[in-house]
């Protein structure tokens, strides 16, 4: 955090020292910035984006207007922002699915890496592998072993989501009979595993149900452990070559001036690492996970390639 603040100061200083930088970049932002949210108003992505936007307004000195463009699991909004003017006044707060899952599966009308520039990552809910509290499966290994003799059904938030693809590649690799059952949203998949209609579910927002003993957490799909449950292994730790890292980050259209990007990254990083934001996100049961724009770009690139492979194996 200190580093970023110093960086932003250095940048501001740099701009003051070199008046050759064009006027537009110096003045930025000179009017309201639009932050597009690819989901409906009131969801966790929307609420956290509104919070980070209202906190960043003070630093940038201009209002940030949050605009909801829901539909087609976020790809509509991504396509719109990818085609917007790269002047730094249109940004998007986006998640894993429209960044690297759906684009790996079918033509969505944009290329995340070519048409958009990541600015930073600030959150991302952990997806867990959960089974009912009274399930016979005590660990991921037991689940996979069990699935080798009898088919094990697992629910996810929807067809061709990141969780589905991650487990599909596990099934392919281990030869386990993992039968996917897609639901309409993670909440319904959670309800189905609680009611015992599926053997397992790959869902976020499991903390209280696990602590209450209604569900058992076998592992997380993410690249790192959930701080609330440090003992639950990642898929890689459990010896399975698959992961579904969850991101919530801010991106701009490709071609945006690097100085504008640096200014935005500095401002948003400062806000996201503040204590106030942390408290806010804890109330929402969302983690704060900060990653630089460059790191986020690498994560997206790695996963885009990985998911394309999985999709190719699955499709044909």
């Amino acid at each position: 955090m200190k580093f970023t603040r110093r960086l932003s100061l250095a940048l501001l200083g740099g701009m003051a020292l070199f008046p050759s930088a064009t006027l537009a970049q110096q003045d930025y932002p000179s009017r309201a910035i639009t932050l597009v949210v690819p989901y409906g108003a009131g969801g966790t992505t929307d609420i956290s984006a509104r919070q980070i936007a209202s906190m960043a307004e003070d630093l940038l000195g201009q209002p940030i207007v949050v605009e909801n463009q829901p539909g087609a699991s976020g790809t509509n909004a991504m396509r719109a922002v990818a085609g917007a003017d790269p002047d730094g006044y249109t940004l998007i707060a986006t998640t894993s699915s429209p960044s690297f899952v759906t684009p790996a599966l079918r033509d969505v009308g944009y290329d995340t890496l070519q048409d958009l520039v990541p600015i930073l990552n600030y959150s991302g809910p952990y997806h867990g592998v959960v089974v009912p509290g009274d399930s016979a499966y005590e660990s991921l290994d037991a689940l996979i072993e069990g699935a080798k003799s009898d088919a094990v059904t697992y629910g996810t938030a929807g067809a061709m989501g990141g969780a589905h693809l991650a487990f599909a590649s596990v099934a392919k690799e281990t030869g386990a009979k993992l039968q996917h059952v897609p639901f309409d949203g993670a909440a319904k998949a959670t309800a189905a595993v609680l009611g015992g209609h599926v053997d397992a579910a790959l869902v976020p927002a499991y903390r209280d149900l696990v602590q209450d003993g209604q569900l058992r957490l076998l592992g997380v799909l993410d690249g790192s452990n959930d701080p609330d449950f440090p003992d639950a292994p990642t898929l890689k730790e459990a010896g399975l070559a698959a992961e579904f890292p969850s991101i919530v980050g801010i991106m701009a259209p490709a071609g945006t001036d690097p100085e504008i990007l640096a200014k935005l990254e500095a401002a948003f990083t400062e806000v996201a690492s503040s204590e106030e934001f942390e408290t806010f996100m804890t109330d929402l049961s969302q983690p704060v996970r900060i990653m630089s724009g460059a790191d986020l770009a690498r994560t997206i690139e790695d996963n885009l390639t990985a998911y394309r492979e999985i999709a190719k194996d699955l499709g044909n």
Binding site: G42, I47, D208, L209, D212, F280, D283, L284, S285
Partner: peptide, 14 residues
């Protein structure tokens, strides 16, 4: 549900 969470009343078993 989001509103309950924001006001510190996380819905769920607790």
């Amino acid at each position: 549900l989001g509103a309950f969470m924001l006001h510190g009343l996380a819905p769920g078993p607790f």
